[in-house]
């Protein structure tokens, strides 16, 4: 199944918040053009792990990282890494929809604009293409100049996905993207993932095991900062090798 080299190759990753260790010796490869789900109980380190992939943990001054995170073969924690460029290629969708308080159009054009695109026609194209990709265009095409805050929660989240796609990333990280949404909006976003993985590498944190089962190709189970088990999603759910994984997915704790 695996022909191309992994998109991310993580080895012996350790991370501390001050003195408390949040990630312990994580070693894992993430394949391209697939959906990788990260599951585990609250506080197990799955969101922290996700944020090491675009170095968003850098915002917290007490964080210390050891080990290596190779993205397309280059260590993103090397001193000469261009973090701006990394984040351009590794986009992120957050748990709570976070549109900027500006128009739909400006939200999506924001990324391209900060990366230097000024031409109106080019921006128009990008905005339309991104909205189409995020399955939102038909719902909002007549109100692109209105405030993004007027959209429903589900629409806001798809807008945030469109905003990420507008900078033409390579990887999309998703941190519980549907946990604040109703079932219908959740279904729309799950369908969207099916489309997106043809073009992008997707890593999704989820609390919802059914969701992991529905959308992902591979699943990683985190517990207390350790990567307990990482396997094809079907295999992990039907044939868990570790007792802890089995307990979690059969709902005995977590």
């Amino acid at each position: 199944m695996q022909q191309s080299p992994p998109k991310f190759s993580i080895s012996d990753l350790n991370l501390w918040y001050g003195t408390s260790q949040a990630l312990k010796d994580i070693t894992v490869d993430i394949e391209e053009r697939s959906v990788t789900a990260l599951i585990g109980p609250s506080g197990c380190g799955k969101s922290t792990f996700l944020r090491t992939l675009n170095r968003l943990n850098d915002l917290i001054s007490s964080v210390r990282v050891e080990g290596s995170v190779l993205y397309e073969g280059a260590d993103i924690y090397a001193p000469d890494t261009d973090v701006i460029d990394l984040r351009k290629r590794v986009g992120m969708v957050f748990q709570k929809p976070n549109p900027f308080p500006m128009s739909l159009y400006d939200n999506i054009a924001y990324g391209p604009r900060v990366h230097g695109i000024r031409d109106k026609a080019t921006l128009d194209d990008i905005v339309e293409r991104s909205l189409v990709q995020a399955a939102l265009f038909d719902e909002v095409k007549d109100r692109l100049q209105t405030s993004a805050l007027g959209l429903s929660g589900g629409q806001q989240q798809r807008l945030c996905i469109a905003r990420v796609l507008a900078v033409e990333p390579d990887v999309v990280l998703m941190d519980e993207p549907t946990s604040a949404l109703d079932p219908i909006s959740t279904a729309k976003i799950e369908n969207l993932l099916e489309e997106l993985k043809k073009q992008y590498t997707i890593v999704i944190v989820t609390h919802n095991m059914q969701q992991a089962g529905r959308v992902s190709d591979k699943t990683a189970y985190f517990f207390l900062g350790e990567l307990v088990e990482y396997a094809g999603t079907k295999e992990l759910f039907f044939n868990p090798r570790d007792k802890r994984t089995e307990n979690y997915i059969s709902g005995r704790f977590g």
């Binding site: 900060v114 990366h115 900078v167």
Partner: peptide, 18 residues
């Protein structure tokens, strides 16, 4: 301001100043 706004912008590859 909610910290999600700042993170959202940085995650798109904007600089802190932008």
């Amino acid at each position: 301001l909610p910290k999600e706004l700042k993170e959202g912008s940085l995650a798109l590859g904007a600089t802190h100043w932008q």
